[in-house]
Amino acid sequence: MIAIEHLTKRYGTQLAVSDVSFECAPGTVTGFLGPNGAGKSTTLRSLCGLATPTSGAATVAGRAYRDLPNAGRHVGVLLDAGAQHAGRTGRESLVLSAMVLGVGRSRVDEVLELVGLAGSPAGKRVGKYSLGMRQRLGLATALLGDPQVLVLDEPANGLDPEGIFWMRGLLRGFADRGGTVLLSSHLLHEVEAVADQLVVIAGGRIVAQGSKAELLTTRGTVVRAADPTALEQALAAAGIPATAGRSGALIADAEPEAVGRVAAAAAVVLVELRPADGGGLEELFRSLTGSTDTPPAGTAPAAHQVQEARA
């Protein structure tokens, strides 16, 4: 059980996190989404006692992290896979943590097995690890104390697709056994497969929050016509609200069949007609992450339109 309540963190004049509140219930996976620099890591560091919030609070099972007697036995933390001593072997890093947690060496072997680093990788120095192996080692450290809560910052970074699939299974299993998982990512598709709840943050503020079902349900219809203006007029005449989508498409607030009938009645030739992608979250996310994931709207599609017009 994690509760973030009105968390605000200010660095000088810069507001890194502003009035962020959300909760993560046992048995669920919460995806904490946002572009780089949105305040995800600052929020997670505040939760784990590594940063002191300017105001507000973050608690685990009703207690501040710093008041947990043996923090690692309650909360497994992976905030940065790169933050490991390059000169130690993977096993040695875990042995040090195991000594602090008060768990036996057999537990070290268990988690090494669990994350797929058992055998010769465990004896290699961390400096020789790939980023993916470091993520696995970080996850092993987080799981070492058999915690009820996992807090993971960008755990999929550096993992190959197979590794991401494996991690999803691991986190799902952890939550299904009653654990609480909070993981951050700057990529929607990385977490949407495993998360039950999504919290989207941008510029230090929460911009969307809710269950995955709420945020990703299909709503509206994507429709594209050979003559967009005619379609727009036909929809307006039929009383169906529509907004501009990408590549000259319209997002109409109606079922595809209704939109198709309107177009047929007005003799508008359609080139595309389908249910819209999830609830605008994807669109929202694209607009937040800007040009990193997709080409900026208006440039490439516009050129495409010109060619279409010539043809």
Partner: peptide, 12 residues
Amino acid sequence: QRTAMTTFALVP
């Protein structure tokens, strides 16, 4: 080596 993150997360 940035192990402070692990050290102080385990012992806040």
